[in-house]
Amino acid sequence: MGAYGLFLVNGLAVGAIYALSGVGLVILCRATGVLNLAYGAIGAAGAMIAWQLMQYGCPEAIGWLAAIGTATLLSLAYGRLIAPHLSFREPVVRAVATLGFAIMILSLMNFSWVEAPRRLTLATDAIGLSILGMRVTGTRLIALLAAVLVTLAVALFLAATQTGLRMRALANDRDLAAVLGVPVVSVETVAWGISGVIAGFSGMMFADLVRLNPTVLTFLVIPAVAAAIVGRLESLMLTLAGGLTIGVVESMATLIRPVAPFRAAAPFVVAALLMLWYQRHRRLTFAGRD
């Protein structure tokens, strides 16, 4: 039991990371129809700038502000300047285009910060408690708590505010919502902004919990997409559950010798299986509806 408990707790801590990113992806996807593959790169840019400022001796609070500010700015820049040019293309094209943005951000980061061992240390790393034999740092607890809180807060925002209502309207039927007078541009801007804030926050969390490396953080978006898929790109609660499940499966797979070397594939296998299960009752697909 001891080993199982250890890997379970660890899996939840990792899963929180996937869940947090997944939620950031889903809220943007719901409101704007864009699956943002640059999400990881945006968060990484925030974290790198925060690290640089903290190297210069700035307090951690400034680092946090810089990370979230940078990520929000980048997200808004794409949302306002580039995304509108593609708004009438199909969702896949809009998703694929964000990869171009991700590559731009990643190469700028690699150009500005030569490959070197770096480490981001947050004040919350020092505190922690022991659960089932594993020591869980404050940062990990915050990540888990944040995943839950952000999910709840965003769900509440969508359910209770006017902007939230408009976002849901946009998500249901864009054209119809626009005809009914939903201010598409401003609602989308809010969505890009919120997604940017979450990207900045999770970027800091990743940089601390995974490692401060632009390439790794940029491509962490792919397992995050897996969590978003579990949530069918719309359900925040399912995304949260999906992220945590993926984390636990990946961690527990360490204990099963034959599959241990392949355990990093857990997000994709879990997501693909769940997706097939969701679709089990569908028979036909019809053009025009995705």
């Binding site: 990792v14 990743f206 984390g247």
Partner: peptide
């Protein structure tokens, strides 16, 4: 590409070794 190095650490601990040879790139 593993995000989760704690699981790697736990696996290393589970081997019952007394010495950890960390043969990894610096990062």
């Amino acid at each position: 590409g593993s995000a989760d190095l704690t699981a790697v650490l736990l696996e290393a601990v589970a081997t019952g070794a007394d010495t950890m040879l960390v043969s990894l790139p610096a990062n």
